[in-house]
């Protein structure tokens, strides 16, 4: 009987354990109030991905309660310092890069996927991002996360098979002309920084804490 109860409890623990809780102890000990977002390393073939992604990151981080350094200014300053190559910035010691701006923590983002797969009648747009926040004093990783999002244009059923085919064909054509990665990147950021247990803790300027 006891064994059954323990088994049941273990099962329940496993079920609730599905949302993998992050270990935030290092982050909470470091208590950063400001985050420096450096240019993004782009592993995809879309050359515009890094800049486009950069435009999506300030809002969720600042809304989480942190001072976020102005991303465009930071990017331009690093270029002036001869650090226009994002890989170079990511491999440099965090202390050195942070020292240029006086921040508490530094966020590195790597774009692992930013692509569209064209099928005959529908298209799937994929975005995969790896985030890591490091402490500017020690260089230690305080938090990291990987998030993937996929988007298929909504196939609203017309209730008529032929009508459905036409809608799907239009969707594929539209996405092919301009695959829209940015809303997907925003969604990935929103999920990453708004899901409790996944996200970094609330910062000092957050509305709710």
């Amino acid at each position: 009987m006891k064994r059954i109860v323990t088994l049941a409890l273990m099962g329940a623990a496993l079920l609730t354990g599905c949302v993998h809780q992050k270990d935030l102890s290092k982050f909470e000990a470091a208590k950063p109030t400001s985050i420096l977002v450096v240019p993004v390393v782009n592993e995809s073939v879309e050359v515009t991905a890094s800049d486009y992604f950069l435009s999506t990151i300030s809002v969720p981080l600042a809304e989480r309660g942190y001072y976020v350094f102005p991303v465009n200014l930071v990017k331009r300053m690093l270029e002036d310092e001869g650090l226009s190559d994002a890989t170079l910035v990511h491999t440099a010691p965090p202390q050195k890069v942070c020292g240029l701006f006086g921040s508490d923590a530094i966020l590195y983002v790597k774009i692992k996927e930013w692509s569209a797969k064209y099928m005959v009648l529908s298209t799937v747009v994929n975005v995969k991002l790896a985030y890591a926040i490091k402490d500017c004093k020690t260089g230690e990783t305080l938090w990291e996360h990987e998030e993937a999002m996929a988007y298929t244009p909504q196939n609203n059923s017309t209730g008529n098979p032929l009508g459905d085919l036409i809608v799907m064909a239009i969707n594929a054509a539209v996405t092919k002309a301009a695959p829209n990665y940015v809303p997907l990147a925003r969604q990935a950021n929103a999920k990453t920084f708004n899901t409790e247990g996944l996200s970094i803790p609330f910062g000092p300027y957050a509305l709710q804490r």
């Binding site: 515009t48 800049d51 435009s55 999506t56 940015v182 969604q187 999920k191």
Partner: peptide
Amino acid sequence: TAASGCVSTRYSWNDYDQKLYHHYK
């Protein structure tokens, strides 16, 4: 899906992200 994001935000962003995106574009 982001729920809280749109209802009330800490700051008045006024589509800052969209505008920066257009600047890069």
